[in-house]
Nucleic acid binder design. Structure first.
Length: 159
DNA sequence: GCCAACGTTGGC
DNA sequence: GCCAACGTTGGC
């Protein structure tokens, strides 16, 4: 089992889009960066993906989803009407891939980027590096633990 | 809206 | 293969 983090602008696709239809399978497409694509090709069914909201009011990790289908050719690269259309991509040799994701849980509160920056587990992680633009990054089990602990911080108060 | 950092493109 | 120019990302 591997862990990942994927960035999204919540206007495009947010954890709420997963949460409102928990059974739905959502295709994660439109990734047009080779490094990010290579990470997507390493994903397996069952891997957990932290959803990160960027370029918005509450920047940070908003919840968890699961990989339910491993990498396959991203259909939007062949769709000339799509903003993700890539004229250099050939159907017999696709450049870009998509994965399918399904809801696991939404965090009570978004874990702010500022909080992640203070976590020792994230000291050298690309997410907190200045100028980082990678939209898909691996997460270690220590980093996963740190995020889940922070996400569960208020749970005992609620019970 | 600003701007720094980065990836990609294209001329040479 | 180099590198300047350009477009995009993304925090602030």
């Amino acid at each position: 089992m591997q862990y990942w983090l994927m960035k999204t602008e919540p206007d495009e696709c947010s954890i709420d889009d997963f949460a409102k239809t928990p059974a739905a399978v959502i295709r994660w497409d439109g990734v047009r960066n080779y490094q990010a694509r290579n990470f997507m090709q390493d994903m397996h069914i069952g891997d957990e993906v932290f959803i990160y909201h960027s370029s918005c009011a509450k920047i940070g990790v908003a919840g968890l989803v699961r990989v339910v289908r491993a990498a396959y050719p991203d259909p939007t690269q062949f769709d000339s009407a799509s903003t993700y259309f890539d004229s250099k991509s050939q159907p017999d040799k696709p450049r870009w891939v998509a994965v399918d994701l399904q809801y696991i849980r939404r965090f009570t509160e978004v874990i702010p980027l500022a909080a992640i920056k203070t976590m020792p587990a994230f000291t050298d992680h690309p997410l907190v590096a200045k100028g980082n633009r990678l939209s898909v990054v691996p997460i270690s089990s220590e980093q996963r633990e740190a995020l889940n602990q922070r996400a569960n911080r208020h749970k005992e108060d609620e019970v």
